[in-house]
Design a protein around this nucleic acid. Structure first.
Lengths: 335, 335
DNA sequence: GGCCGCCGTTGGAGCGGTCCAAGACGACGG
DNA sequence: CCGTCGTCTTGGACCGCTCCAACGGCGGCC
């Protein structure tokens, strides 16, 4: 029992397949009674157009591929929300792919996407293998969302202003009265920008000498270890700005292990405003990169680029917002 | 500049398109020098077969659709890992779809999948709208993973043994010396089974009268509120088994708000062994439904069903394992 | 030498849609 | 009464691939 085709519908409705095609694509110049007959036949047969046949003929798929770096790290959820909402409005389907699940780390996935002839690709987050994206960029519109790399000709970048976000976080701590402030770093271009924002804010307040930096790797484990090293320094910092929420949670557990009360004895700020930060039991003060907005704008950029593939690449930054929650307070001494 | 087709490759290599097709599909009966010529032409042109054309002709897509209920709740990550690993080995691609992102809650997505003519569908988790799945089940092999519903003819179900898992959790608490134990419920068939396991364990140890049940909704908020209600009872329970990790985290924050020390004054057990439970700062004792295993088996079931679509539906349960972490201990009194 | 069978290769018929040029048909003006 | 026009409708070419029947050439056998 094979799936019905457009010919089956045509036969059932007593019209030609061309007419069925016209009805299904909403042409106005079809006599109402024939339209009804076609729609009835579609319903009776449970007809669904074959996407492969359609896209073969139309030479477009009405589908965009979204390349995620890692499903486990949930910062991208908001972004995805905005992205898919806007793309769906434009009549495009979204296919999700997780680069990390693939052993060949994304290469295979961009390959799948190019074989599927998706109309566009959105790379979400910092990919492990930018090489694959480079290859795709020549063939299909590509937008990078929530990351700064790779910067390629003809590729748009939409992401939060990480340097500004880091400055907001650091200035929040300074305003509370902290002086000796540490930063646990991230990785890649985004990590560099957040660090730069931290250092700029410290310098601007004459605190360059009080700034500590410890290397992290965007994992809980890395955050924990970095925090342990920081808390062993003398004098120890009274506040830590971590490169992301997961790192911050690692620092939180290190503080607890040292018997320090957060936020009384140690203030912590994360980044990303993930669902982790919003858990009451963690309740992290964090920087919200307004992911929804990033997603919406990335979608718009992609749609523009599908219209006009030869536009030069752009970089668009959204304004992050500080979310004050429970992990920051004035330092003990200055109370 | 259009993407090269198989004819372009054939012309470049000086052979027919049929020969190119043979080479690409790994036929043995091609003379080596021609094979080399074809592969060279493929490389030079950067040729990628058009998936739409191929699947139209082959009448299969080598693609399965995975229907997720909600990307935000991360319990499915392990499952997905196992699932995709096995399907990829079988030469199948995986397309992810998030039912919740779609306003029409999954209906649209199964529709997309049927239009794409995916070779199979895996529904992961308890879907909001089982009706859509019912429609799909008639046309394409369907496997439900990590949920018990809907039970449909010709649909396989693979999931953890929730009743056993709940019993493991409850017996762990009883073994520690707890008597007055509460359960915060989940929803749907899975919720009912976890509750049943809890009640069965309590009854089996003569503690039916000491069992408390409070309604949750699988969210942090719901867990928090349910825990507040439980902690207000007199005498209050010394241990709580929550229907999932997120609920458990809600209960944890309620305990903290009441000034109760976990695990000294209140033991907590979650379910799912999500990344939340593994955060040092939460470090929840929880039930691990062995999601990886569930994913592997679901993949196997789907492959079987693609082979033989008319097999009767099966239900396969994996054995969950208790993960003892930091939120359980003997009750204060019995120390 | 002619016939057979095999190997390697090829042209062409689909797969199920879209799209376009052309056809059918009724109305209307001359 | 016939030509023309506009409205609806239709057949067929085409999208890029797979698959199958058939073909040329060649060595072996009678």
């Amino acid at each position: 029992m094979r799936a019905p085709t457009i010919r089956d519908v045509a036969a059932r409705a007593g019209v030609s397949k061309s007419l069925v095609s016209l009805v299904l694509r909403g042409s106005g110049s079809v006599r109402p009674e024939k339209r009804q007959a076609v729609l009835a036949a579609v319903k009776e047969l449970g007809y669904r157009p074959n996407a492969a046949a359609r896209s073969l003929s139309e030479r477009r798929t009405r589908t965009v591929g979204v390349l995620l770096d890692d499903l486990r790290n949930p910062w991208f959820v908001e972004l995805l929300d905005g992205l898919t909402a806007r793309l769906r409005d434009a009549g495009l389907h979204v296919l999700l792919g997780d680069g990390r699940l693939d052993e060949r780390l994304g290469e295979d996935l961009t390959r799948t996407f190019t074989e599927l002839r998706v109309d566009g690709v959105v790379a979400v987050g910092t990919l492990r293998d930018p090489q694959a994206l480079r290859a795709a960029a020549g063939r299909v519109p590509v937008v990078v969302a929530g990351a700064r790399e790779p910067e390629l000709p003809g590729v748009d970048v939409v992401t939060g202003d990480d340097e500004l976000g880091a400055r907001l976080a650091t200035e929040h701590l300074i305003r509370l009265g902290h002086r000796r402030i540490a930063h646990i770093t991230g990785r890649g271009a985004v990590g560099a920008l957040r660090r730069r924002g931290f250092e700029a804010a410290m310098r601007a307040h004459g605190l360059a000498d009080a700034a500590l930096v410890e290397a992290g790797d965007l994992t809980e484990e890395g955050g924990h270890r970095a925090a342990v090293r920081l808390l062993g320094r003398e004098p120890r910092p009274t506040a830590v700005f971590a490169a992301n929420d997961i790192t911050c949670v690692g620092a939180l557990s290190a503080a607890a292990a040292s018997g320090l009360d957060v936020p009384r004895e140690l203030s912590l700020v994360g980044y990303d405003n993930t669902c982790l930060a919003r858990l009451r039991h963690l309740w992290l003060t964090t920087v919200d990169p307004s992911g929804h907005e990033v997603g919406l704008r990335a979608a718009r950029r992609l749609l523009d680029r599908i219209q006009d593939p030869d536009r030069p690449g752009t970089v668009e930054l959204t304004r992050p917002v500080l979310r004050e929650r429970g992990t920051t307070a004035p330092p003990v001494a200055s109370r």
